[in-house]
Design a protein around this nucleic acid. Structure first.
Lengths: 332, 332
DNA sequence: ACGTTCTCAGCAATCGATTTCAATAGACGC
DNA sequence: GCGTCTATTGAAATCGATTGCTGAGAACGT
C-alpha cells in the first residue's frame, strides 16, 4: 500500500512537499506536477486515520435519528446527505431507537473524535442529555425541542402551530367532535401537538373533552391503529387529528375496519407530509413541518459551527404548512 | 483532553502497561486496579484515530444500500445494527441512490481504511463493480446477485422461485390472466422476478402474453401506480404479480382509481413482506424474501471474514416464503 | 551592488495509541 | 545455592500523515 513517503520518494521531494501538494497548498507548478503524477502512478490514497490523528479533523459528520424506518427521518437523511456531499463531507447514520441511553452514548462517543460533528434528532431531551450536550466534545445541532439553556444550535418545527392549524381547518369544515390521536406524551412532539390541539379547540370555541384524546404507544402505524380502535370503542368523533402521518395511516385502517367512511363519517388529518400520505386512500390531509428543510438547515448550521466553533448559538424555526387532500373532506 | 500517557502518569506506570490494561491483556491485579482507577478518574477515552493508525483496525463496518427510504433496506439496517452492536462494532450507513458510480466510490473509498468491511446491497452489479470487488481494500459481502467469479461472499434471495410461487398461488385460486408489474429489467431483481413469473406461468400451463407485462421506472410506489395505469389502459388482467410491495401499493392505488375491486376483480400479490404490506386495504399477499435474515447473515459473514480474511468465499441463499393475506382473494 | 522581502522546500516534531523486545524479579526444581 | 523458567513491566519503535520552523535562493527596490 503506497504511503505519502512512497509518493515523495518517487517524485523526488520531501513528504512535507508531497503533503502540501495533496492538500492544495500553494506550490511551485513543477513540483506540483511531479507529485500529482507520482501519486497518480502509484494509486496513492491518504490514510484517514493518520490524517485525523494529526490534523484533528475526520471529514465526517453523524446523524443520529430515533428510527431509520420512519419516513420523516429518511427524508432528513436525504437532505443532510445532499449538503454533506456537496461540501465534501462523509455522513454517518445512527439509529438510536429513540432510547435516551443510546442518544447519550452517541454524545459521549463524540469524545472518541470519530466525527467532527453530530446532528441529533431527538424526541425527548432528558436532563441528562441536556447536560451532556453542554459538554459535548464536538459541535452538535439538535433537531427537535430547544434546550432551555440555549447553548446548543437548534432547528425546530413549530408543530404546536401546525396542530392548531389542523384543528382550525377541521372546524372550518364543520366538524365539532374533533379527536386527538397523539403519540407518547413524554416526548417533545407529543407535548407540542397536544398543546396545539388545545389551542385549536379554543380558537374555534370548542369544548375540550378528554375522552376524545387517545395516546398511542409510539408514533407508528400499528400503534396508531390500536389507539384508534380504543378511541372508537368509546367515542364517535367526526374528525381525528393525528400527531403524525404514520398514526393517521393506522387510524385509517381502524376506521375502515369499523365500517366508517373517511372523510364522510370521520375527517382525518395527519402531520409530517411523508411521501406515503399522498398515496393512501383517501389521500391524507396533513401538515408539512418542513422536514427536508429543517434537516438541510441543521446540516448547514453544523458545518458552519465546525468551521467556526465560536459565536452565538442559533435557534432556527421552520413554519408549518397545511397540505389539504381528500381525507379532511374537501372535494377533489 | 486526557490521553493514555495522562492515565499512565497518574497510575504511575508506563503507557505500555496502561495500554495493556485498557485492552484487557493479562496484567498484575494491582496495576490493573491502579490503571482502571486512573482512567476512570480522568475520564479517559481512547483516541480512535491513533488506535486505528497503529492497529489497522477501525471497529467500524459500513452498509451501503440503494435507498434509505425503502423499507426493505431499513429492515436490513435494523438486523445489521443488531449484530454489529452485539459484537461491539460501529455501523456506518450509506445511501447510494442505486447509482453504480456511488457504489463504485464506496468500494474505492475502502482504501481510505475508514471501515474494516462493507456490506453492499446492490441492485445491479456492473462489470466495473465486479472488477472493483475483486480488488477491494477490505472485506466486502454482497447482498443481491452473485458475481460470476464467486470471489466475494454473497447472500442472496431466491426471488425467482418466490415469483414462481406467487404466480402458482394466483393460478391455484383460479386466475388465468396474470399480469407482471415489474421494476427496471436491467437490475438483478428485475431479471430474476421476470424469469420466476415466466416459470410460474409455464408450470401452470398458462400462455405468456407480453402485453400483460409492464415495467415501472423504479421499485417504488408512484412508479408502480403509473405503470399499473398503463397496464390497465390496454389489458384487463384478473391478477397482478408485482415485483415488490411498493409497486403493489402503487398498483392498489391505480386499481382503486379504475374502480376495480381487489381481490374480487383483480387479485394482487407483492414481494418483500414489508411492514406496510400487512396494513394496506386489503392487506397484501406477498412473498417474504427474508430481508432481515439475509442482512443478519451478511453481517455475520462480514465479521467472520474480517476476523479471518482467508478461506473459501461463501454463497448463502435464503428461501422465499409466501405470506397469504387478503389481496389475493383467499377468504379472511 | 546590496539589503530586504518573498517563495518554496526540507527537516524534524508531533498527534496518541499499539506492539516488539529486552530486562527484571520472583518461583521453582534439584 | 544456583540455574532455569515465567510473569510483568518499561523503553522505544512504529503507524502515516500534518505543520512549525529554518534556510536557500530568487525577486525586488533603491
Amino acid at each position: 500500500m503506497p504511503t505519502l513517503s512512497t509518493v515523495a520518494r518517487l517524485a523526488n521531494v520531501s513528504v512535507a512537499s508531497a503533503s502540501r501538494v495533496l492538500n492544495g497548498i500553494r506550490t511551485n507548478p513543477a513540483t506540483l506536477a511531479r507529485v500529482t503524477e507520482a501519486a497518480e502512478a502509484v494509486g496513492y490514497v491518504p490514510n484517514q486515520a493518520a490524517r485525523t490523528l494529526r490534523s484533528r479533523r475526520t471529514g465526517q459528520i453523524a446523524f443520529a435519528m430515533p428510527d431509520v424506518a420512519n419516513p420523516v427521518y429518511t427524508t432528513m437523511v436525504g437532505s443532510i446527505q445532499e449538503v454533506a456531499r456537496a461540501r465534501g463531507w462523509r455522513l454517518m447514520l445512527h439509529s438510536t431507537g429513540a432510547e435516551p441511553e443510546d442518544e447519550l452514548a452517541m454524545l459521549r462517543d463524540l469524545k472518541h473524535r470519530y466525527v467532527d460533528g453530530l446532528i441529533l434528532a431527538s424526541l425527548h431531551l432528558t436532563p441528562e442529555i441536556v447536560a451532556e450536550l453542554a459538554r459535548a466534545a464536538a459541535p452538535v445541532v439538535v433537531i427537535g425541542g430547544a434546550t432551555k439553556d440555549g447553548c446548543t444550535d437548534t432547528v425546530r418545527a413549530n408543530s404546536r402551530k401546525g396542530a392548531g392549524d389542523a384543528v382550525r381547518h377541521l372546524c372550518a369544515l364543520g366538524r365539532d367532535r374533533i379527536a386527538l390521536l397523539n403519540g407518547p406524551t413524554h416526548t417533545t412532539p407529543g407535548v407540542a401537538r397536544r398543546l396545539g390541539y388545545l389551542d385549536g379547540l379554543r380558537s374555534c370555541g370548542l369544548e375540550r373533552r378528554d375522552s376524545l384524546i387517545e395516546v398511542a404507544t409510539d408514533f407508528m402505524i400499528e400503534p396508531g391503529r390500536r389507539a384508534a380502535e380504543l378511541l372508537l370503542a368509546r367515542e364517535r368523533p367526526d374528525a381525528i387529528f393525528c400527531a403524525n402521518d404514520l398514526l393517521a395511516i393506522g387510524a385509517l385502517s381502524a376506521l375502515r375496519d369499523a365500517g366508517l367512511d373517511v372523510p364522510t363519517d370521520v375527517a382525518l388529518v395527519g402531520m409530517d407530509n411523508i411521501p406515503l400520505s399522498a398515496l393512501t386512500w383517501p389521500s391524507l390531509t396533513t401538515v408539512d413541518l418542513g422536514s427536508a428543510e429543517r434537516a438541510r438547515i441543521a446540516a448547514e448550521l453544523l458545518l458552519e459551527r465546525i468551521e467556526s466553533p465560536e459565536g452565538e448559538t442559533r435557534l432556527v424555526g421552520v413554519e408549518p404548512r397545511l397540505v389539504v387532500r381528500a381525507s379532511s373532506g374537501v372535494p377533489a
